[in-house]
Design a protein around this nucleic acid. Structure first.
Lengths: 199, 199
DNA sequence: TGTGAAGATGAGCAATTACTCGCATAATCG
DNA sequence: CGATTATGCGAGTAATTGCTCATCTTCACA
């Protein structure tokens, strides 16, 4: 376990919890509004309205802050997707795919630029085991859904589908497209087309 | 025109051209082998076997070096794709798509990690106009192909297809998959499926 | 062969960065 | 109330970075 990516101390009082949250939120805002080059510990502390000392009391470095943001994001994704898989269980294939896509898009629509920025940061971080587990869980959920529906080579399909949806959603966000419904329709078209099930 | 992204001086003698090339190649190798955090001007000069002074004689900063690498990559892509579009003109739809996909994959297979690293760097750079033109040209080539084949909403389709192929190829490279043929087959499946033309 | 231009050098400067530490303040509890 | 613990502070430090410039070497050409 790389201790440099884990929070240093867990807050016990209310105000310290607030400090932690302020730091995380400030880091997120900086990433989105000022870019990754502006993400320095001093700047984070400044925007969070706390001192660098306080920051380092709870995080061993800025990488740990980013890693924590990533963990939060992945946790949210797992929750959303797990719920969607449950809901999709009783649906026909086509609407079930729609349900899953809606869930993955929810995550993107909440804070699209943040999601994109964090995914970009993730590639530079020595990947955390917890995050790795979460990502495997995501792929597993989708693979399980596909397998139950009789799709052959479910793991590979899940891999490709996640990749293509991710690519299309990222490109749409980058291009400033905010028509979520339209994007969802295009994703459905791509997914169903790939699966050879446009019925 | 942002002068900070353009080369500073064009080499006239042979040895200075060699210096330029050494710098560019060193930067590319560092990006792939040591990661973006290791990409410092001093390190580039060191790996290129030249002094920092020489580096700054031809590039106003490290961003200009990366920008030049990106320009090279985009130029190669345009050449490859233009040739593929020409070759595809006389082919039936299905093999034509295969020709185009082979071209885009060529670019990825030559130096996959470099392509990925550069695309990542590109997002942090104030996008160069020349690069912007090149990217528009790429989309235009594909949109033109689609339009000639009677595909509706060719621009949007080109956008989506580029995005999904890019997503799948990137994910495959990141996962260490080196089965180019298999990847191409999966891309064909995705593209033809999206276009609703599995015939 | 000599002379100016082109090229190469690398020590070192200014700016920025991550991070520490001694001390002040606030909460908790006997 | 103390006393203990948790929290907050921010100037300061060591290390790193991008980049310059005075100086030396190599080349082109009359």
């Amino acid at each position: 376990m790389d201790t440099r990516l884990k929070p240093r101390k867990t807050p016990v009082q209310g105000r310290s919890k607030a400090t932690c949250d302020a730091v995380l939120e400030a880091a997120a805002r900086i990433l989105v509004e000022e870019g990754r080059s502006a993400l320095t510990t001093n700047r984070i502390a400044e925007r969070a309205g706390v001192s660098v000392g306080s920051l380092y009391q709870y995080f061993p470095g800025k990488e740990a802050i980013v890693a924590e943001l990533i963990r939060e994001m992945r946790r949210d994704m797992v929750v959303l997707l797990r719920r969607a898989v449950d809901a999709a269980a009783t649906q026909a294939f086509r609407p079930a795919v729609g349900t899953l896509l809606a869930a993955t898009l929810d995550h993107h629509t909440a804070r699209p630029e943040l999601a994109r920025a964090l995914e970009r940061e993730e590639e530079d971080l020595p990947i955390d085991m917890e995050t790795q587990v979460l990502k495997a869980e995501l792929r597993g959920l989708i693979a399980g859904f596909l397998r139950e529906r009789g799709v052959a080579d479910a793991e590979r399909c899940a891999f490709d589908l996640v990749a293509m949806c991710h690519g299309m959603a990222s490109a749409a966000v980058r291009a400033g497209q905010d028509d979520t419904e339209g994007l969802k329709a295009r994703l459905e078209r791509a997914v169903l087309g790939y699966l050879g099930r446009p019925e």
